[in-house]
């Protein structure tokens, strides 16, 4: 089975986020593979190990994203594709990945349920729409038997179990697989695995970020003596206005 895994890089979770003017300040920021994409990649590798086939990692980004593509190769992807363009918005990114998927006939396209920076949750479903194939988002389990694909999705108070067919686009959330740490053999073999750079297909970005705002600073903590519940109620009622 030919599997395409969408990889995006995001700031490390310990990064202090700051902006210079209206631009994200990337100086000194360490970028990592989006954790949900790592889950998708790991499940793709598991499927390849049991069913055979190949796993291709794809990203839309400039050369500075190649280190994380190499990491995807070190984790076990067979080859990688970088579409040489800034990832301007979800539509543009989806158009690039759909274009590659169409030309190469992938049976399964996997993405993370969202990137942990912009949290858009859009790219996967857009790719599916562009390819005119089914989409299942936020899957915590994905099993392939022949042409049949069974997926679990967490829903309020439980989970639903869905069935679909290949070709399919799905997005992964926690539970689908346990991300793997690259081992030394993988890192060594990643040196020589193919990493193809493609120029972007014609597509417009449909959205643009106008501005960024930091969340309001945390207010000072007000301590209420334990023996004065009346004061607590009064503050919750009149000041916080939550009761």
């Amino acid at each position: 089975m030919k599997i395409l895994v969408c990889i995006t890089q995001v700031p490390d979770t310990t990064t202090r986020i700051s902006f210079t003017g209206n631009a994200f300040n990337a100086a000194g920021v360490q970028f990592i593979i989006n954790p949900y994409d790592e889950i998708a990649l790991t499940r793709a590798l598991e499927l390849k190990e049991t069913l055979g086939g190949s796993v291709t990692a794809i990203t839309v980004g400039k050369p500075d994203t190649e280190a994380n593509l190499r990491k995807a190769l070190a984790i076990g992807a067979d080859d990688a594709i970088r579409v040489n363009a800034d990832a301007t918005d979800a539509y543009f990114v989806a158009a690039q990945i759909a274009d590659v998927a169409k030309k190469n006939g992938y049976e399964l396209v996997l993405a993370g349920k969202e990137s942990i920076d912009y949290n858009g949750s859009e790219v996967g479903s857009m790719i599916a729409a562009m390819l005119d194939v089914p989409f299942v988002g936020m899957a915590s389990r994905l099993v392939v038997e022949g042409e049949k694909v069974t997926l679990d999705r967490e829903i309020e108070g439980g989970k639903e179990i869905l069935e679909s067919t290949l070709p399919l686009v799905a997005s992964a959330q926690k539970g689908m697989a346990e991300p793997r740490i690259p081992n030394m053999r993988g890192i060594m073999s990643a040196r020589t695995k193919p990493l193809q750079v493609l120029e972007p297909a014609a597509a417009d970005a449909l959205t643009a970020v106008i501005s960024y705002e930091m969340p309001p600073a945390k207010a000072a903590c007000k301590m209420v003596p334990a023996d004065n519940p009346a004061l607590l109620i009064e503050l919750l009622h009149n000041e916080a206005k939550v009761i």
Binding site: G28, Q30, E66, A67, R70, A74, N183, M184, I187, R191
Partner: peptide, 27 residues
């Protein structure tokens, strides 16, 4: 754990060095 790198010494390392280091760190 968050590794201190006060003099931005990561810039002296190759991408492969960092991948090896980060993999060991994660492990």
């Amino acid at each position: 754990f968050q590794a201190p790198d006060y003099y931005l010494l990561d810039e002296l390392l190759t991408e492969e060095h960092k991948l090896i280091r980060d993999s060991a760190r994660e492990w």
